[in-house]
Amino acid sequence: MTRIVIFAKAPVPGQVKTRLIPALGADGAAELAHRMLLHTCQEALAAKVGPVELCLADHPGWTEAPPAGVTLTAQGEGDLGDRLWRAAERSGPPLLLIGADCPELDRRRLGAAADRLRGCDAFLHPAEDGGYALLGLNRLDRSLFTSIAWSTGTVARKTAERIEALDWSLHIGETLRDIDEPADLALLGASLP
């Protein structure tokens, strides 16, 4: 069984999807983040590859329970790398680390990633912005999460380089699109109910 860990911020107005606020306003950006979060949870559950965990950034104003079948955990302190490492170490491999801002990461792709991970040490779905939409791991090493320039166009490349430096087998899947900027809203189409 492969655990899916969804990394996300609580959909609180003014705190989430801030680059979309010029197009949607703070409430609209938070509502979209909420819809994408629920959609991601539903798709992760529907993939039926293993337990689903929602790992949220701490926010005292968010009290909504996760969907049935999804375990809620807190990301804790530190930069994104610290928080990802903590979640990966707690969950243990095999696991799929994903965000909640890539509606293209549907049940079919999640299931295929879990299947592919059975035959390699790591699986990566790069994102068009240079990050990654999914990092699947059968082994753990902290170097994958340290000294990374998070939220830049080099994250996926640096992660792949580090996996190769560990002499692990790596499969790179198709490049997917995150919804981060106003121009990305046109990509939503039918991918998000």
Rank of each mutant, 00 (worst) to 15 (best):
G99S: 00
T146A: 14
E174V: 12
T154E: 04
A87G: 05
A127Y: 04
L95E: 09
L170T: 03
G81K: 01
A183C: 07
V155M: 11
G119C: 08
E128C: 02
R116W: 01
T154M: 05
A100K: 10
D178L: 14
L137I: 00
L170A: 03
L185T: 11
H171R: 14
L176M: 04
R107S: 15
I179T: 07
A87I: 03
T154V: 03
S91D: 10
T159P: 00
E174K: 13
C120V: 13
A156W: 08
T159W: 02
L110H: 05
A127D: 08
E174I: 10
L84R: 13
P182I: 00
A87L: 04
A112H: 01
A127P: 03
L110K: 06
P93F: 11
C102H: 10
L134I: 01
G173P: 06
G153S: 14
A100F: 11
T159V: 12
A133W: 02
L176G: 06
G136Y: 00
L144M: 10
A133Q: 03
L105H: 02
R90N: 14
G136I: 06
L124T: 05
Y132W: 15
R177P: 03
R107G: 09
E77K: 15
G99E: 03
T146W: 06
P182Y: 04
A133T: 13
R139S: 12
A100V: 08
L80D: 03
D180H: 12
E164R: 15
A160D: 02
G130Q: 02
R162I: 03
D180G: 09
S151Y: 09
D167F: 05
A156P: 04
L80H: 01
A112V: 03
D129Y: 10
L134P: 02
A149P: 07
N138H: 07
D129T: 07
L96P: 10
D178R: 15
R118Y: 00
A149I: 04
I148Y: 00
L84T: 07
R107N: 12
R142L: 07
A149G: 08
I98L: 13
R157I: 04
A160G: 07
T159C: 07
L96V: 11
E164M: 07
G130L: 05
A149K: 12
R177V: 11
R90T: 15
R142P: 12
F123R: 03
I148V: 14
D180I: 12
A160E: 10
R86V: 04
D141L: 06
A133C: 15
D79L: 11
L84Q: 11
I163K: 06
L84V: 05
G81P: 04
L117G: 05
A114S: 01
R116N: 05
A183R: 13
L105Y: 00
R142H: 12
I163P: 13
L95G: 02
T146F: 02
G153D: 15
W150M: 12
E161V: 07
A100R: 09
A122T: 13
H171D: 15
V155P: 02
D115A: 14
D129F: 09
D79P: 10
L80E: 08
E128H: 06
I148K: 00
G81Q: 01
R157W: 03
R162G: 05
L176S: 02
T146N: 09
H171N: 09
A88K: 08
A112N: 02
R142G: 07
W85T: 06
D106Y: 11
I163F: 07
G92L: 10
R86C: 02
A183L: 07
R107T: 10
D121P: 01
T146K: 14
P182W: 00
L105S: 02
G111Y: 05
